[in-house]
Computed example of a mutant assay.
Amino acid sequence: MWGKSTAAVFLGMPLAVLVTGFAALLSSDQANTTLPWLLVFFLIWIAVMTCTFLFKTGLRAWLWMGGLTVAGYAALHFLKASGLIRIAA
């Protein structure tokens, strides 16, 4: 139980930030869609933390969620470095 709980606490927020960030970046009108996605962020965070307890063991939760976090941020870095997405200032 401790393994799943710590995975939810430490990896839940980065995954929720990643999902929210991808959703906001992939929208066509970032100026009008960023705020609604930021408001939905808390619900996504709770959903990710809840899904952590569906894993059989804490190790699986850490490996899957950690792998998704690393892969997601690597993809985000690749998209930004290649110029496929641009962050509006």
Rank of each mutant, 00 (worst) to 15 (best):
G72I: 01
D29R: 05
K56S: 10
A16V: 11
K56Q: 08
C51S: 12
M49W: 09
A88W: 02
A71W: 09
T34A: 14
T6Q: 11
A8F: 08
W45I: 01
A75V: 15
G21T: 14
F53M: 08
Y73C: 03
R86E: 13
G66Q: 13
A16K: 04
T6D: 13
F53R: 10
M1D: 14
P36S: 08
L15N: 11
T33W: 13
L79D: 03
T6F: 15
Y73W: 15
L84R: 05
Y73V: 02
P36W: 12
Y73I: 01
I44F: 09
F42V: 15
F42E: 02
W64T: 15
L15C: 05
G58H: 08
A74M: 07
I85C: 00
H77A: 15
S28N: 07
P36T: 11
L25D: 00
V70T: 09
W45P: 00
S28D: 11
A61D: 13
M13I: 10
V48K: 01
P36Q: 12
W45L: 08
D29C: 06
L18T: 04
F42C: 05
V19T: 03
L79P: 00
L26R: 02
W64F: 15
A7M: 13
G83W: 03
I85A: 02
L84Y: 14
H77E: 04
L68N: 11
L11D: 03
S5Q: 13
G72P: 01
A71F: 13
L43Q: 05
L76R: 02
N32H: 11
L79S: 02
V40N: 03
M1E: 15
F55T: 08
R60Y: 08
T33S: 12
M65N: 13
V48G: 00
F53A: 07
A71Q: 06
T50F: 11
A89M: 10
R60M: 12
A81H: 13
A23H: 01
A24Y: 00
A16I: 03
I85R: 02
F10D: 12
M49I: 11
A74E: 00
M13F: 11
L43M: 09
V17I: 13
L54V: 13
F42P: 02
P14G: 09
G67W: 10
C51D: 05
L39A: 09
L25T: 04
F78P: 00
L35H: 05
G3A: 10
F53N: 06
A47Q: 06
A47R: 06
L35G: 01
P14N: 12
P14D: 08
A8N: 10
S27L: 03
F78H: 13
L76Q: 04
G12T: 14
L11Q: 09
